[in-house]
Nucleic acid binder design. Structure first.
Length: 388
DNA sequence: TCTGGGGTCCTAGGACCC
DNA sequence: TCTGGGGTCCTAGGACCC
């Protein structure tokens, strides 16, 4: 099952202020370079959609109410959504703040009326949290995701593999999950306008289609046959990178102009890493130039770290070395190759000490170090010390 | 008043090792 | 007789998604 909250941020605001119900709402910032994160269904009717520059959305729907996003509040609602799902099945893979894959094989096979059960589940969620959702049921994650997109809001779509031609083939190629604004025009160039067109080109081994999609072509072929990945990974919530970026109040040139922004980004990343109990070995500095092109430069530390001063020192070095003369619109800092600093053991040290003859002594020493590593190294907030 | 910010995954080239 | 084939790790860029 793929389950997706409908117009999540807008619904969240309606829950907080029921007077907004049914009204056109745009969630996003209104200032320079603001974009729409979510548009309520009333606003969507006027042509508003997420990703749109806010001023464009307001031109289409001047009466819309603009609300600044409140991610902390959305996160709270999201947590209650996921704890509700856990009652249905323990096998949940969080796909984003508002959607999940759930392995309901067990839960559904026991029911006499699985469809009725899902409907009840959907309405109980609405009852309990005020959130409406769409559900897709299928034999693979991709197909379930495509299914949940077919009917909104409060949709329930069951797609058997045999339904694929009728349900998906007529859809425009842009609605294929995994094919976006770059690939879709290339496929249209090849005469592929619908999902069905893609299916037949792949089936007939059209070389140009395979060339355009690369390895992804084989994944698409599997998906369209109903053979895609169907394994739900509950542990997927372990992050692989932690980063923050910000669009500057104006274009800036030279490190001294962006120094304070980079400093606070490093501090934010450091705090988030500590809170997630992660340390990272690779720091990446991202900048966007005035033509909206992104540039990245990265550095790997000999040891994983979350120390904001080390992050900042390296970010400064990278910036001065590569971007000093560039007009810059956005700066970002990201930490990756994350490890849990509490789970680290001293493997390299073992090698050094094994050269010594007294193995008992060595073992004692290693045990002692590992015991120390297991003690909490991280102190919270103001108690945090430099050596942390 | 053009186009956010959080991520994941893939590709390709180069250094390095055996 | 100038130069194989296996692999890993690192870096940079880019596509895609919500």
């Amino acid at each position: 099952m793929h389950i997706d909250l409908n117009a999540f941020f807008a619904s969240a605001e309606e829950i907080r202020d029921p007077a907004l119900k049914g009204k056109p709402i745009l969630i996003g910032h209104e200032g320079r370079s603001g974009i729409v994160a979510t548009a309520s269904y009333a606003a969507r009717k006027k042509g508003c959609h997420s990703g749109q520059p806010m001023f464009q959305a307001l031109r289409l729907c001047p009466e819309a109410k603009v609300i600044q996003p409140d991610f902390e509040y959305y996160k709270v609602l999201s947590v209650s959504f996921f704890s509700y799902l856990k009652e249905v099945s323990p096998l949940i893979e969080q796909a984003s703040i508002d959607e999940a894959y759930v392995d309901v094989t067990e839960a559904l096979s026991k029911r006499k009326d699985p469809v009725g059960y899902l409907r009840k589940l959907q309405f109980a969620l609405k009852e309990r949290t005020g959130l409406s959702c769409s559900i897709g049921i299928a034999s693979s994650k991709w197909l379930a995701k495509m299914g949940s997109d077919l009917k909104k809001p409060m949709g329930l779509t069951i797609l058997h593999n045999a339904d694929i031609p009728k349900a998906l083939f007529p859809l425009p190629i842009e609605s294929f999950w995994g094919i976006g604004r770059k690939t879709a025009p290339c496929l249209r160039e090849l005469g592929i306008n619908t999902i069905g067109d893609l299916y037949f080109k792949l089936k007939d081994n059209d070389p140009a289609t395979y060339q355009t999609l690369g390895k992804f072509a084989y994944t698409c072929r599997d998906w369209l046959r109903g053979h895609g990945d169907d394994v739900v990974h509950p542990e997927r919530d372990d992050p692989k990178s932690i980063g923050n970026s910000t669009t500057l109040s104006r274009d800036m040139t030279g490190f001294l102009e962006v120094r304070n922004e980079i400093k606070s980004l490093c501090e934010e990343v450091s705090e988030r890493a500590k809170a997630a109990r992660k340390a990272g070995s690779t720091l990446t500095l991202t900048v966007k130039d005035t033509a909206f092109k992104l540039h990245t430069r990265s550095h790997s530390f000999p040891e994983p770290t979350f120390d904001s001063r080390r992050l900042f020192a390296e970010a400064e070095a990278l910036y001065r070395r590569y971007f000093e003369a560039m007009d810059v619109r956005l700066v970002g800092i990201s930490l990756s190759r994350l490890v849990d600093p509490l789970k680290r053991t001293v493997q390299t040290t073992i090698w050094n000490y094994e050269q010594y003859e007294n193995m008992d002594k060595t073992r004692t020493l290693i045990n002692e170090i590992n015991r120390k590593l297991k003690k909490p190294l991280l102190r919270r907030g103001s108690e945090a010390k430099d050596e942390d």
